[in-house]
Computed example of a mutant assay.
Amino acid sequence: MGRSGRVTLTDVARASGVSRATVSFVLNDDPRQTISATTRERVLAAARDLGYVAHGIARALREGSSRIVVLNVDWGMEGNFSRSYVKGLDEELAEHDHILLVRHGHAIPESTQKVLDTIAPRAVLRLGEAYMQGHEPIEEDWESGFAANAGLQIGHLAARGHSRIAMALPDHDFPLTEARLGFSREAARRLGLAPLERFVVPGPREAGAAAVEAFLAAHADVTAVAAFDDDIALRTLTALGDLGRRVPEDVAVMGFDETEYGSLSSPALTTVHIDAEVLGRIAARTALGMRSDGLTPVHGRIVVRASV
């Protein structure tokens, strides 16, 4: 072991019986070098056994950037989708010796630039950025992407006999609100349903009840509410209960992007569960300039409970 007590590349090379250069190629996952699987595993095993930790600052100087990838997650996007996405992104980056830094809240350009100047990240990502920029879904998105998950919600309500559906939206300007609304409206059109109505359910309980009451008074033919997410669905459930409306007999309510709270409501909330771990792994490989062969997005699924 090195004189300072810190395990060095030389220590790993000696333990694995290869050159220091080979150890460097393996630990840096250098795509320009062809190292046999046996040698690679021997080096990695020696590094694990010795507790080797790379000197990040020195490597950043060599590579021109740190081995940090930054993910910005806007407020209002903290659901199962974001949690599973972060998990996949983090684990995939770790497998390639990179570190994930997650920033919550609105990422203004000035603060992002400070991050760039301070840590020189390998990449800066923003959850859902493509859709925030007005990305039009291709047909693949309707098979396994964000649009497909929005379509699951509308499709489930339609399958239960609802042809007049409204979408309950948050009272704050979330980055993906318009994209979600657009996908849901297109899903309704594809299913031959009436155009999707929209209304906002504010946070204070009394205000939420007043908003729901006013909307239903003006749209008596609406029999189902597709909520922006589980939080808005729970606001709607509470409002309907306060108004003496039965769920689902009078109005069905369906959530989106499952949280654990929906199972605790009365009635329990039917919702859409989205597992985005694979999407996180794909994003990690893309950020590192690697192929994503063998990684296929997982389809969303309906969690059937009592509110529909």
Rank of each mutant, 00 (worst) to 15 (best):
L193V: 05
T236M: 02
L196R: 09
A187I: 07
E249S: 10
F183A: 13
A233H: 06
V247T: 07
D242H: 11
A218I: 04
R198M: 03
D230N: 06
E186R: 15
A220G: 04
E197A: 15
A209H: 04
A233V: 07
G241K: 14
A168T: 10
R235Q: 10
A209S: 12
E197Y: 05
P202Y: 13
M167P: 02
P202W: 13
A188S: 10
V225G: 07
D229Q: 03
R235F: 14
A188E: 02
I165Q: 01
G161Y: 07
A159T: 10
F199R: 07
V201L: 11
D171S: 15
R189W: 03
S163W: 03
M167N: 12
V247A: 01
I165T: 00
A210K: 12
H219S: 09
D229H: 13
F174I: 04
P175E: 03
G241F: 13
L234S: 02
D229S: 12
A210I: 00
H162F: 01
E206V: 12
E206M: 11
P202N: 10
V247S: 01
G208K: 06
E213N: 13
L240V: 09
L196A: 09
R245K: 14
R164D: 15
E197H: 14
R185K: 15
A214L: 07
A207S: 11
L191K: 04
L169R: 12
V222E: 04
E186C: 01
P195I: 10
R180I: 10
A239Y: 14
V200S: 08
R190M: 08
S184K: 12
A207N: 01
G241L: 04
L181G: 03
R189G: 00
D221P: 06
G161F: 05
F215H: 05
L243D: 00
D229C: 13
L234E: 04
R190I: 11
S184D: 01
R245T: 01
A217K: 14
E249H: 07
T223P: 11
A239P: 00
F199M: 09
L216W: 00
R189S: 14
I165L: 10
L196M: 15
L243A: 09
A227I: 07
A226H: 09
R180M: 12
R246L: 13
